[in-house]
Amino acid sequence: MSDTPESMTIIAFSGDLDKLWPTMILSSTGAASGMDVTVFFTFWGLFPLVRDDVRITGYDAMTKMLAGMNAPGFKKAKLSKLNMGGMGSWMMRKVAGKNKVLPPEQLFEMAQDMGVKMWPCQMTMDLLGIKLDQMRSGLGEPVGAATALSRMSKSQINLFI
């Protein structure tokens, strides 16, 4: 093993429950394997980072409506298919619980504890009207595409989920 840890960067683009899962599983496992892991949250991926007590985000009618249709927070995340008005995600969480698969919000916290860097994208925060103080604590300072690319150019593993 070299002294510089291997590095992984994940672009968390999707806010779907079934895509947040692999993002959180891979980032926490990467940290557990001694990798330097960064997750860059952008577009729909930002909504899960909004705190559960924040009901709505946005700065005008349209951005508020977007947040209304994309209920913020991990717990409101929908399945990318077969969501069936929330029945699908409810069932998926139920089945996962029965099989002792941790929900993504818990894996997120474990990943954070293990040193995974969680970076929100500044441009999409501005675009969607999501403020840093509406989001979970412990996130990195918001960054842009150049910072993400600079990390990715040094990472052996780069994923877009």
Partner: peptide
């Protein structure tokens, strides 16, 4: 009784 990725974590 745990599932992936818990044993590794």
């Amino acid at each position: 009784g745990q599932s992936c990725p818990m044993p590794i974590l």
